[in-house]
Design a protein around this nucleic acid. Structure first.
Length: 426
RNA sequence: GUGGGCGUAGCUCAGCUGGUAGAGCACUCGGUUGUGGUCCGAGAUGUCGCGGGUUCGAGCCCCGUCGCUCACCCCA
């Protein structure tokens, strides 16, 4: 029996795991510099949290959830998205009882039982952010800017930000009425009619030409915004422009989660094939009260780390093969005696914070140096019988090939080595 | 869930109209005594995804199955 990973999961191992880590950490630090604080949440929750929070009519809830009964007969679901769980935690622990907004970030695995495809996995990794308890358009911009900053920090260029407003409930009710009436006049097949019944907005991103043509003249939600929603959205747009964050208005944007209201956005990367959304989010006015909490609005995003990695690769950002782990020093012992000498030195250096590894396995000098080369270490140090007796060893700069004599076998040789390395790094 | 393409060494792939397996990269060792990356030489490596069928004979054909992949759908 040869085991395989379950279908459709994304997993990362060296050397690519290094790029994955880089992407994830960059996206996280973009949130941290903006004052968002970590929440570490469970990957499974009460099923009802999602059916109520995300919306029973959504595809995510109706056909893509990993749901099972636990041993106590409770219905449990592997989180398909992050916002509902974050809200649950905020409400449960009263995070919203203090000063507002509550600004939190999270990262981790999410699960959706879909057919796998390029950039679409059954287990995927997301970094997200939520800012709760403020109506200000400024916070909308802060959230969008945090995502954008992460992408830019990574060096991404070809993505675009699409923006729209889903308005407040009066805006949506007015629009929905006209849209429903409009849809009645169309010639649609049964399946599409059912979709329209669940959420008429879905028809806006139908890819079939016949549907697109019919939808061309459909009433657009942006035209129905209440005065308040309109001013809010105008402020968001003006601020983004002022901050140099480019965006396009997509008046037909459709999001898969029912809780979105007001400012809604998506980051699209065109080099990714069918699954081109690298991140998205928006405001959610009714979610918290729907889940039994205070009637507070919030705004957040979820960024797909897997897809951002794909996007980085598509743009050639990680072309240079990243080393497994960045090492300062690599020790090459020759002979049993040297090996015994090197192991405590290794420990000593690591205690001092020097990133160091050694050649194991009684390799030849050539083999040891080859291992040093592969490790990507900045320096190498060969230690054999000669060095042991003389107390002098040659530390070699692997880039320039330059060697320099350094004392070993003294009580403070670890410190000396560390000093040397720090000094050479400027 | 629906449809198309594909599954051969760790990786990327070649394998003629069926005659029982190859290349490059990577790996290990060596190229006169202890300094890697280039070059040269040598070596190890496969249940040809799995199960069944057709055939004297199957990596090549047929069926099933699992997986990957792309698109629909959906979204991160």
């Amino acid at each position: 029996m040869r085991f395989q990973a379950p279908k459709g999961v994304s997993e990362y191992f060296p050397p690519r795991s290094n790029a994955f880590e880089r992407v994830r950490d960059e996206l996280i630090s973009a949130a941290k510099v903006a004052g968002f604080a970590l929440v570490e949440l469970p990957v499974f929750e009460d099923t009802e949290l999602f059916t109520r929070g995300v919306g029973a009519s959504t595809d995510v809830v109706s056909k893509e959830m990993y749901t099972f009964e636990d041993r106590g007969g409770r219905s449990i679901t592997l989180r398909p998205e992050g916002t509902a769980g974050a809200m649950r935690a905020v409400i449960e622990h009263g995070l919203d009882k203090g000063q507002l907004p509550v600004k939190i970030w999270y990262s981790g695995q999410f699960f959706r039982a879909e057919r796998p495809q390029a950039g679409r996995y059954r287990q995927f990794y997301q970094v997200g952010v939520e800012a709760i308890g403020l109506q200000d358009p400024e916070i909308d911009v802060e959230v969008i800017a945090a995502a954008d900053r992460g992408f830019k920090k990574l060096g991404l260029k070809n993505y675009r930000l699409e923006l729209t407003s889903l308005g407040d409930s009066t805006s949506r009710i007015a629009h929905r009425k006209d849209l429903d009436a409009f849809l009645q006049t169309l010639d649609l097949d049964e399946a599409t009619k059912i979709r329209a019944g669940l959420n008429p907005l879905r028809l806006f991103d139908d890819k079939r030409e016949s549907v697109r043509q019919q939808m061309a003249t459909a009433p657009i939600l942006l035209d129905y915004l209440s005065e308040e929603s309109r001013i809010h959205f105008e402020t968001v747009k003006a601020l983004l422009t002022e901050m140099g964050i480019a965006f396009t208005i997509n008046e037909r944007m459709v999001r898969g989660l029912d809780y979105y209201t007001g400012t809604t956005f998506e980051f699209i990367h065109p080099d990714l094939g069918a699954q081109s959304g690298i991140g998205g989010g928006g405001r959610y006015d009714g979610l918290m009260s729907e889940l039994g909490g205070a009637d507070l609005s919030g705004i957040g995003y979820g960024i797909g780390v897997d897809r951002v990695l794909l996007a980085c690769e598509a743009e050639g950002i990680f072309e240079a093969n990243l080393p497994l782990t960045p090492l300062d020093l690599f020790l090459v012992p020759i002979g049993a005696q040297a090996k015994r000498f090197v192991v405590p030195l290794l420990q000593n250096l690591r205690e001092l914070g020097v990133r160091v590894d050694m050649a194991y396995g009684d390799r030849s000098l050539k083999g040891g140096m080859k291992a040093a080369d592969k490790s990507g270490a900045v320096f190498s140090l060969v230690i054999g019988d000669e060095e042991m007796t003389s107390g002098q060893a040659q530390i070699k700069n692997m880039k320039t090939g330059q060697m320099q004599s350094i004392k070993i076998a003294t009580s403070d040789h670890g410190l000396q080595l560390r000093e040397f390395i720090l000094a050479s790094q400027g």
